[in-house]
Design a protein around this nucleic acid. Sequence first.
DNA 1: GCTATACTGTAAATAGGTTAACAGTTAGCC
DNA 2: GGCTAACTGTTAACCTATTTACAGTATAGC
Lengths: 161, 161
Amino acid sequence: MSLPKELKMKGGMLTTQHEALLNIVRTATIIGKLSNAFFGRFGITEAQYNVLIVLKLADKPLTQVEIGERLVVSRANMTALLDKLEKKAYVIRKKVEGDRRIFQIELTKEGRKLLDKVEPAYLRQVESNMACLNLSACKALSRVLTLLRENLHITEEERHE
Amino acid sequence: MSLPKELKMKGGMLTTQHEALLNIVRTATIIGKLSNAFFGRFGITEAQYNVLIVLKLADKPLTQVEIGERLVVSRANMTALLDKLEKKAYVIRKKVEGDRRIFQIELTKEGRKLLDKVEPAYLRQVESNMACLNLSACKALSRVLTLLRENLHITEEERHE
DNA sequence: GCTATACTGTAAATAGGTTAACAGTTAGCC
DNA sequence: GGCTAACTGTTAACCTATTTACAGTATAGC
């Protein structure tokens, strides 16, 4: 169903560009709800899973700020996220010699075990979610959205000048 | 910058489909942050604006459930959202004769006045955000995302069977 | 060496979202 | 008519996110 119909709006009320933007946001909202329903079955949330995956894929130990940069999550929020992951024993904060401000965050054995369970199932879910798009459609989609993100960063900077 | 680079992952770690999905979510996240920065200048949030716009565009008075359906917002959440909008006097809950369970939600004069101020500025911001995509790119994007959403609804229903 | 500045993590208040349980009301059905 | 089921809105507990303010630490420059 097209967006104007979902919103029960008369046709012609949205510009083509506005409709595209709302389509992005709405699709992401629905993906987010499906994801959280999925991860909930494993006792974690999407945000927590993202942290674990970034830690697993990083080529060096990361600080809280570094994780936040990769995930577009604020420092304050990383504190709260890691508090919960540490309480569940999936990560630990390790003190760093030479800089007492920072922690290095490490996956624990339990964290890795959880990922071994969740990751394959998650990839299957992603495949099922995206099954209606062929490879070239996916590539075109990524290309357009990457271009758009670059434009958003630029207009954001302009607004701050 | 492509997603694998933003995440500082080695290439080839994501399938094309997975990368497309993450591109959608990440782009929407950034749009959401920009939107909330924008609406914050008018003392409202994106979610609150969405409620006001749906009320303005509806062709009949809406109940809380009906607003929630259009916006994919739960009943519980609509209560909280409308509490805030009613406190700011942008909407009122009106009792309905013949069904004491429901309210009809109406925009107040202040609500309309706010929209008259916010809407034009918002449309300009949307245009600037999407300026890097031409009309046919926007149409293609909307078409692909609409198709994807339909597929998501289907796989969601399958999982509940 | 000292000071000013920048950086890191934390905390509190606020907002939006979830689910689960609940009360009141309506509607269907025997 | 009366019981049951469905619907509407609220509440509480929780999670994620925001901004602001703060403490502690590190660094650069004088």
